[in-house]
Amino acid sequence: MQQKSLTFITRQAPYGSNKAKLVIDAALAAAVFEQQVNFLFMDDGVFQLVQNQTAESISSKTIGRALETLELYGIEQALVDSVSLEERALSAEDLAIPVKILNVEQVRQLAARSDVVINL
């Protein structure tokens, strides 16, 4: 199968809407089909990464479990926009999974070199 570089940008907080889950599911599908997948957390999407979430309290599934599957499906690195973290007073130590933090120029390059960018 032809291979493209697909970048998924997740920009919504985890539980108030289903957008976060939609982006994860689409990225996992792309990984199953052996595409080159980048997964970038941006804006309120970085709230998905916060530690100690227990979404069972609102009868929802804690998003961290789904995020952990990214690596299992071969999406090796979760990428995070540094500006979005700074704007929310978050740092790498606050996050539940290991991530690679990208500066503005790296984020721009990522978008520029991707064949397809899915930004839900």
């Binding site: 032809q2 697909l6 599908a29 199953v32 595409q35 397809v116 899915i118």
Partner: peptide, 15 residues
């Protein structure tokens, strides 16, 4: 399934 979205991304020149 979502495979059809991935296939569309691959097969199309623009998504």
């Amino acid at each position: 399934g979502l495979g059809q979205l991935v296939d569309a991304s691959i097969q199309s020149e623009r998504l």
